[in-house]
Each structure stands twice: as C-alpha cells, then as structure tokens.
Design a protein around this nucleic acid. Structure first.
Ligand SMILES: [Mn+2]
Ligand SMILES: [Mn+2]
Ligand SMILES: [Zn+2]
Ligand SMILES: [Zn+2]
Lengths: 137, 137
DNA sequence: TAAGTTAATGAGAATCGTTCGCATTTAGTG
DNA sequence: CACTAAATGCGAACGATTCTCATTAACTTA
C-alpha cells in the first residue's frame, strides 16, 4: 500500500500524497500533467488543491518516485518510475506517446559526454513524428 | 546583407527583422533567448519591442532561418541555422553548451520511428552533465 | 516619388503553467 | 491526548509568452 512506499521514500504519509500515488500506481494513466492528476482526483471525489498536486509531484520527483518530462507544450508531464529507463516517441498530430529503450543510443551518449569532457548526469530524448493511425488522414 | 536573406525567406525586410538577423549572423551569440536578443539590441542602441522579438524569432523559425530549442528552464533559446543539424550537451552547473553530431544516434532514431510505425519528423536530444571546468569544484 | 494597401510594430493587458506566502490543519511522537 | 514540525488550501504573485489594437512602416502602383 502507498503508506509504505511513501515512508520508504522519506515522506510523511499524508492524504494527498497517498491519493496521488495511488492514482499513479493504478497505471490507468501515464505521462500525466499536474492538471490531469488534479482533475482526475477531483472527479473521483477527492478534495485537494492544485498547489498541493504540484508540490507533491515535485517531491515525488526528488524522491525518485516519478520522472518529470518536458514534452513540448510548456507544461510538465509525470510518470511513475517502474521498470527500466526509457525514452519517448510522440505523435505531433494526436499526442500519442510510445516508449522505447535503445542500448546503442544510451552508450553513444555516454561516449559523447566523455569525449566532450562531461560527467554525464542525465539526458532527454524525444522523437517526434506522425503515428501510423494519423498517417491515414 | 540581411535584406536578401529575409526576402529569400519570404519576409518583408523590416528594421526589427534586419537588426535581429544581423545580431544572430554576427555569431557572437549562440543559443540565445528572446530576452537575450532584446537586451542585446537595446544595449547596442536599437529601440524595439520585446513582443516584436518574440514575433520575429517565431517567424524566423517558421521560415527555417533559426531553430528553437527547449533547454530546460521554461524558456526557449534560438540559434541561427548554419551548417549541419546537431544536438547539444549542457552543463547543469554553469550552463555551458556544447554541440555534437552523431550519425549512429541519428540512424537509430530513424529505425526506432520506423519500428514503432511513425513517420519521423523531428527529434530533440539533450545530454546533461558536469563540464570539465565545473568538475574541479 | 506620392498615395494606397496591407502587413508589421509598440505598448501594455492578458494568458498559462507554476510557485509562493501565510494562516490553518494534520501526521507522527511521546 | 497534547506537542511540534511539516503539509495543506487558498489566493496572490510570477515569468515567459501571446494577444489586442491603435499607430507606423514596407512594398505596389500610378
Ligand atoms: Mn514513459
Ligand atoms: Mn547549437
Ligand atoms: Zn497520431
Ligand atoms: Zn560547467
């Protein structure tokens, strides 16, 4: 249950945190914005503040529970950390998001960082395109 | 001169556009924000509006003259299109930006898009790390 | 080169996602 | 159950960007 996950992450098990974590763990939603989380919880009868959603998601990010993505469009989207690191490919027409893992790219990035004298800490890779469904238009 | 470049791009050769393009073509600044451009021009004695800088940079982007990047931090940065496409590696401490071209990664992206059924239109790749100078801290 | 047409500009208001300040509530502890 | 620090809700504030609209400047044509 969420209480344990939160404690493990060094966070007090408050109601808003548990609700938000429970929502993410349902896995019905992935790549959600703070607004998405807020609305989903409101609709399911919870009463909480948008500011809290932002705060909690940021705390979850810092605790390593979620990853924040900057899919274009000026707002952050979050996803629960589960399974291995992956990157994303997005449809610029319908907003569909697919995930992929590519060992070759991961290694190349390490090599490039090393060549440039950087100590690599992170990376962000998005491929944009038209998904198969949207190509039939 | 800038007049020709603008005409070629299908844009009226107005004063603000020429000043902005001239600034970018000086090549003393790369990866600049709209605010950077605005301040630089103010300091060099030009008088123009920040709204115009935003408008012009967006037009330049649409005309293919500049590329817009979303280096983390909630604001866009622009760079003049010259030479080949490249990606970026950024220092998370000092903000230094280096550029690189990697054929292997480019090809892999194409392959991934194809596998996922996407018609790839674009991609964005940023590597983050600590630059060699900042590692000595 | 002056007049006309249309697009571009300047100034500031508006927008949008996100953060902040502060009074109030709550979780964890003994 | 009382205590203390931390978390929350609310609304104001924020920063980057866009918009509105009156004014001005670029191309066109005569
Ligand atoms: Mn994902
Ligand atoms: Mn560059
Ligand atoms: Zn699509
Ligand atoms: Zn550095």
């Amino acid at each position: 249950m969420e209480t344990q996950d939160l404690k493990k992450a060094g966070l007090k098990a408050t109601v808003p945190r548990m609700k938000i974590l429970a929502l993410l763990e349902e896995n019905k939603v992935r790549h959600v914005s703070a607004e998405d989380v807020y609305k989903a919880l409101l609709e399911s009868g919870e009463d909480l503040s948008l500011a809290t959603v932002y705060r909690v998601l940021t705390q979850f990010e810092q605790a390593g529970l979620v990853t924040r993505h900057h899919f274009e469009g000026g707002h952050s989207v979050f996803e629960l950390n589960q399974g291995e690191h992956h990157d994303h490919i997005l449809c610029v027409k319908c907003g569909r998001v697919d995930e992929f893992v590519d060992k070759v790219i991961e290694e190349r990035q390490q090599k490039i960082a090393a060549e440039k004298g950087y100590n690599m800490t992170d990376h962000s890779l998005y491929i944009f395109g038209i998904c198969s469904a949207c190509q039939k238009d």
